[in-house]
């Protein structure tokens, strides 16, 4: 379960403050798959980072599985993220000197299970699932954007988190690969996980039970009924 209550964020930009997110409230139950759409710069990524325990909101509270990560000390919060939240960055943020497989496995360093056989098996299986077997030992800068995107998703899923937050995970993918990724997210939600997806892509949004639209830092209307289909 993911709960955002009146969260706001204002960036102190070079040319004055930018209010990226304005008092947004949002609740996702376990097993729910929600997509957020909206024009570029409307604050989607900012919202997702706050939801993922990666950026303090200026105001409002965030609860992930009933816990406000921002009340935890930094190390505990990091571990909490590692265990409970799978996060796919819009810019992927892979470790540049680690291979695809190692990048996926690095997530297990957070839980201390990185050297376990079943974990490395799971990593290989995820790599395989996202069609990266032939790139397993390649480092990020020799990969295509789509390959990086999928590596980032595999990493997010390794620790079997209860929440998956993905920022444009299909932005650089062809239809076939996009399907693979979206299927994985649907499966994740079906298995009881909470999915919050940020996307421009209608195809991606179409897989969500709920599609929300964000505009200038605010969620327009929650219309679960209309977006939940298909």
């Amino acid at each position: 379960m993911l709960e955002l209550t009146n969260v706001s964020k204002t960036y102190q930009g070079a040319s004055g403050p930018v209010q990226a997110v304005k008092a947004v409230s949002l609740t996702l139950e376990a097993g729910q798959f929600v997509a957020v759409q909206g024009p570029s710069g409307c604050g989607k990524s900012t919202l997702l980072l706050m939801a993922g325990g990666l950026m303090h909101p200026d105001q409002g509270t965030v609860r992930v599985g009933g816990v406000d990560p921002y009340t935890l000390p930094p190390d505990k919060r990091a571990t909490f993220r590692g265990e409970k939240i799978g996060f796919v960055f819009q810019q992927f943020h892979l470790v540049p000197y680690l291979s695809v497989l190692d990048n996926v496995l690095a997530a297990a360093l957070a839980t201390g299970s990185s050297t376990r056989k079943e974990v490395s098996d799971r990593a290989r299986q995820l790599v395989d699932q996202f069609g990266l077997s032939h790139r397993m030992h390649h480092v990020p800068n020799s990969l295509s954007s789509g390959e990086r995107q999928r590596t980032a998703l595999a990493r997010a899923l390794l620790n079997e988190p209860s929440h998956l937050l993905a920022d444009e995970p299909t932005g650089n993918l062809d239809r076939e690969n996009a399907e693979t990724v979206l299927n994985a997210m649907s499966d994740f939600a079906s298995a009881g996980g909470t999915v919050l997806l940020v996307t421009h892509d209608d195809l991606a949004a179409s897989r969500a039970q709920t599609v929300l639209t964000m505009r200038a830092g605010e969620l327009e209307t929650s219309s679960p009924a209309t977006a939940a289909t298909r």
Binding site: L54, D75, T79, F87, P96
Partner: peptide, 16 residues
């Protein structure tokens, strides 16, 4: 910094 940010984001402790 970026790598530290990444490792931190995916859950590594400062000590690690």
């Amino acid at each position: 910094r970026e790598e530290i940010g990444i490792l931190r984001a995916i859950g590594l402790r400062a000590q690690q």
